[in-house]
Amino acid sequence: MSMRIILEGNKLTKTYRRGRSEVVNAIQDVSLKVYEAEMILLYGPSGSGKSTLLNLLSGLDKPTEGEIKFMGDEISKLSEKQLTDFRRKYVGFVFQSWELIDHLTAVENVEVPLYPSEINSAELRTEAIQILRRLDLYDREHHYPGELSGGEQQRVAIARALIKTPKVIFADEPTGNLDETTGNMIMRLLKTVCRRGTSIIIATHNEQLKEYADRIIRLKDGQMGG
């Protein structure tokens, strides 16, 4: 494993206000480092702050306290527009329910992140098909999500994350809606992606995924532990 730090969170705290007076500490004093081509598991029960931490590290939300650095540059103080640029250039997402767009074919779903880019449409299509084939989705390019199995849909979602060649992929319960066999297949796939140089941070409460992780960060009540 390379020792180059890709992402770093220092003393991250995120508080929310619930109602008028109640303050909730979703994340409290969390620090972590993510290395290049490393797979990290954020492990914890529901409500432990995994999603909040994913939001902070991926630039979807800003910490109340602490700082986040991406390849040495602080991103926690960037403007909304700069954060959007950051996510577009460096970050890929894989969601629990795949979140594919129903009325788009598999290949169009993969292309979606790069529609606003300057890449030529023909090149984009070639690239999307190549990625789908790399993930064993031969002859499924023009199928709609409703015509694909759960495992196939999750592979399309991974292809959608990969098309931007991101530095980091954030995955939220990537096997949550899959049976065990398909879930293992998806994890092996993510592991392969990771070995090719992409760091992957997975939020899960599924203990079986631990065997794929290079490192496990346990979260409980918004704090690191275990």
Partner: peptide, 8 residues
Amino acid sequence: PAEAFRDN
């Protein structure tokens, strides 16, 4: 965009 990740 934070709504993309549901709280688990």
